[in-house]
Design a protein around this nucleic acid. Structure first.
Lengths: 332, 332
DNA sequence: CCCGATATTGGATACGTTTTCATGCATCTC
DNA sequence: GAGATGCATGAAAACGTATCCAATATCGGG
């Protein structure tokens, strides 16, 4: 019942050596073959598991990885998390996960929690501005951003999808189909994408057709519905995330807009249900899992030679949610 | 750069009191009002944050919560995780997440990791048999199961959806529509549901119509496609999870089975895309987030008066994926 | 005015580990 | 053969905190 945990001392005693030797053997230090053998045998017999608590205190770091993302419920972030977990598991590191809800205040609070836990590596999909991250840097915590950049924080490496290319090919594809009034339905933290969108669209850009929602489903739906109602003249929309895409499909159905006859839709992020939709959704696939995995690699590799960041490719997957416009001006 | 972290000693020194007093003040112990005031002021000035490392070692527990689930990518588990995170955040507790992939071996490995971390509370959606959990119990770790029970482990409380009622109403609904050949497409860890299904179906049960897939998408698709091909006489299928439902829709489409004309489908778990499907999917909604939240509550409340477990209600949400059979025997 | 009870306080200890340092021993070099 | 070199080893010192315990200050009652 109140059986004390077997400690390194017990192993040392049972093996007739000092605790230092046991520690060395278990951490891969140097030791004579016979000693190593004996220690390992005894440790196995006693089913000894070194306590991370003691080790962490000694080296003043928990060794764990902190992962902060907006919403674990969103499959995109879920896939990112999966990548992080996979990489961390292969390194034997625990991962502490926190959901920020895209709220900078909650984010700051969670950062504080991670620091208190002595986490020395953090992967984040940042919500707030760069200021939130001063504490982690000051505390010497290795920080890597995933999926998003943070305003005014070019000192933190980031692993992101190639939004420039993604938005570019999507816009090219739509204009190539004859679309001229193209809307962008964005979410939080997409400043980068927005500027690329404006740039790619060039003279065609119409600020009224650019609308950003907050992170919630309701907000996304409201933004989509409002956009479609106020500007019935738009012919194509680029949804900046699966939540936005879902909202667009729903709002379009509600307003009796047929996809792709009345409205062409391209959605960022390829999710399984994109194929189940009717029509199946044309999407820009992002390597979500890779983003997480690479970020974890970066953060595990440590501060050694900080790379500037990693850019992963996106891919336009054409399905059935876009139609040509202009030539056949949808008669009737 | 190499600025040492401010410790409780610094605070004690600056406030002119002993470390014990600071510790007491910060842990809510007794202290004179003026001392408390001074200590708090100084602590705030120095931006002191107690190190979880030291505390954990002292009281030989990390205080964190371990969360083990099959696949963080699956929105159902994602919602469970979200509930756990929400509850843990309100308690200020960190959550260490691990993905087992429904592999008992990986599960055991992750359990070992959690124990090594000194986690003293674990929430799990168990994969393996009950044996994996002997170590946590032996180590005095408060363990709670979520969503699933584990074979031969009635000593661990569980928070689950009311599968009995869920399967019951689904089967009743289908038989009420005239269906007689009803299949069950299951996943890992659904022994409980299976037995309920058999029981609810009574004499209509056909063992050949019961097929279980492993956790992967491919496996789910293979199971669905195999089932539909081998038994074209079945008229309805109950999918035991959103992954299985997705596979069923895909396989049906591939084999040119129209839903609901040729095949009625009920899916366990209401996901956002169920409404986006055409036809929209009839589902059995499960309170995934609540399951996680309640499990976290249970585990945080500690061992005090272990309840036998919690049963949360399910709800049949009728949409468009089920049609009547028998009366109008689908002519042509 | 003194004694016992109570509240507050700080010193010391322990938690389990890693790492530094000194020691002993064997081997090598000239 | 003597000194130098290398290696294996164990004692001890942290790491930052919570808590036990003794000591001191405060208070009330007789």
């Amino acid at each position: 019942m109140n059986m004390r945990r077997t400690t390194i001392k017990d192993v040392a005693g049972a093996a007739g050596v000092g605790v230092a030797t046991v520690s060395r053997v278990l951490s891969g230090g140097s030791a004579s073959p016979e000693t190593r053998e004996r220690v390992l045998t005894v440790a196995a017999q006693l089913d000894y598991r070194p306590s991370a608590l003691g080790r962490n205190l000694r080296q003043r770091r928990s060794g764990g990885i902190g992962l902060l993302l907006p919403d674990i419920t969103d499959t995109f972030y879920g896939r990112v998390a999966d990548g992080v977990l996979a990489c961390a598991r292969s390194a034997g590191e625990p991962v502490i996960v926190g959901a920020t809800g895209d709220d900078p205040e909650r984010e700051a609070e969670l950062i504080g929690m991670l620091l208190e836990q002595g986490v020395d590596r953090v992967i984040a999909i940042p919500s707030g501005d760069g200021d939130s991250w001063a504490p982690t840097l000051r505390a010497g915590v290795i920080t890597v951003f995933a999926h998003r950049l943070s305003a005014g924080r070019d000192d933190i490496p980031a692993v992101v999808a190639d939004d420039r290319a993604g938005v570019g090919t999507a816009v090219d594809y739509l204009t190539g189909l004859g679309h001229r009034r193209i809307a962008y339905l964005g979410g939080p933290g997409q400043a980068q994408r927005l500027s690329v969108f404006r740039q790619a669209l060039g003279p065609l850009v119409d600020e009224e057709l650019i609308v950003v929602a907050r992170g919630s489903r309701d907000s996304a739906y409201a933004a989509a519905a409002g956009l479609f109602q106020h500007r019935p003249d738009l012919t194509a929309v680029l949804a900046g995330g699966n939540l936005l895409g879902e909202a667009a499909v729903l709002a379009a159905r509600e307003l009796d807009l047929r996809i792709p006859r009345d409205l062409s839709l391209i959605m960022f992020d390829d999710v399984p249900w994109a194929e189940l939709c009717s029509p199946p959704l044309t999407v820009i696939a992002q390597p979500a899992r890779d983003i997480g995995y690479r970020a974890a690699e970066l953060v595990l590799r440590g501060g050694a030679r900080r790379p500037r960041g990693v850019l992963l490719p996106t891919e336009l997957i054409v399905r059935g949610s876009c139609a040509a416009r202009g030539t056949s001006r949808s008669p009737r």
